[in-house]
Simulated scan of single mutants.
Amino acid sequence: MRAPVEQYFAALNADAYDDLAAVFTDDVEIHTVGAKPVVGRAAVLAHFPRVLAGYAEHCDRVTRWIETPEAIVTEIEFTGRLGDGRPVVFPALDVFDLRADRITRVTTWYDTRDVRRQVLA
C-alpha cells in the first residue's frame, strides 16, 4: 500500500517529475490549502515543476505514516533553499487516497502564512 506514496516522494525529492506519471490515476486530484484543485494527470504533472521552480533544493521528509486500506496520511518536514539561498522549513500533512495501487487524490495542509513569510521575506 505504501509503495506508490514512497515513489511519489522519491520522484518529488529528485525532481524526477516524469516518474510521477506511474503513481497517479488518470483522474488524480491535488488539493492544497489555499489553492484551486489541480485535476487530471497531465495538469498534475505540470503542477509540481511550477510549484517547486523557485527552490534551488527541496526535500519532503516523511516523519510519520498512518495507513488504512484506502488512504495513507503522512506528516512531513519540508526543508528547502530558495534560489537566493534563503532557507524554507515547515511541517505539512498529506493525505493520499489510493485505488488499485495508484494515487487518486493528494490533499495537503500547511501553515500558508508561515510559508509565505519565509518565501516573500
Rank of each mutant, 00 (worst) to 15 (best):
L98W: 07
T63V: 14
F48S: 01
R61W: 04
F78T: 03
F96C: 02
H31W: 15
F9R: 02
T74A: 13
H47T: 03
T68S: 13
V39M: 09
P4S: 13
F24R: 02
T108F: 05
A53R: 09
L45P: 08
E57Q: 10
F78S: 00
H58K: 14
T107C: 11
N13K: 04
V5N: 03
D97G: 09
V51L: 13
E77R: 15
R117Y: 03
A42H: 05
R2G: 06
Y110S: 10
V51S: 13
V73L: 10
D18Y: 04
L93S: 14
G54Y: 04
R64N: 08
R113H: 10
T112C: 06
E57S: 12
D111I: 03
W65M: 11
Y55C: 04
H31L: 12
R86P: 02
F24E: 04
Y17F: 15
E70A: 13
P4R: 05
R86V: 01
R81V: 15
V33E: 08
D15C: 10
R116W: 08
T107S: 14
V95P: 07
I103T: 01
K36T: 13
F90P: 02
R102T: 09
D15K: 11
P91D: 10
T68P: 07
V115G: 03
F48R: 02
F96H: 06
R117P: 01
R41H: 09
R99K: 15
L20A: 08
W109K: 01
D18H: 11
V73K: 01
A53Y: 00
D15W: 00
G80N: 04
P91T: 12
T108D: 00
R116Y: 08
Y8M: 02
A53Q: 10
V5Y: 03
Q118F: 06
G54N: 10
A21S: 15
V23L: 08
V73Y: 00
T74K: 02
G85I: 13
V5L: 07
D114M: 12
H47E: 10
W65A: 14
Q7R: 12
A43P: 06
T25R: 09
E57T: 09
T104C: 11
A43I: 00
F48V: 03
A21C: 12
G85R: 09
W109R: 07
A56F: 00
L45R: 10
A11T: 04
L120V: 09
P37Q: 05
R2H: 02
A43L: 04
A16E: 14
P87K: 00
P91F: 05
R64M: 12
A100Q: 15
P49G: 12
T25Y: 11
R99F: 14
D27P: 03
R81T: 14
R61A: 15
D26K: 06
A71H: 11
M1H: 12
V89N: 05
G83V: 00
V39L: 11
D101F: 03
A100H: 15
R102S: 12
V119H: 05
R61Q: 12
A121T: 14
K36I: 05
T25M: 08
T74Y: 03
L120E: 08
R105P: 01
F48L: 04
A92T: 04
D18F: 04
V73E: 04
F48T: 02
E77F: 07
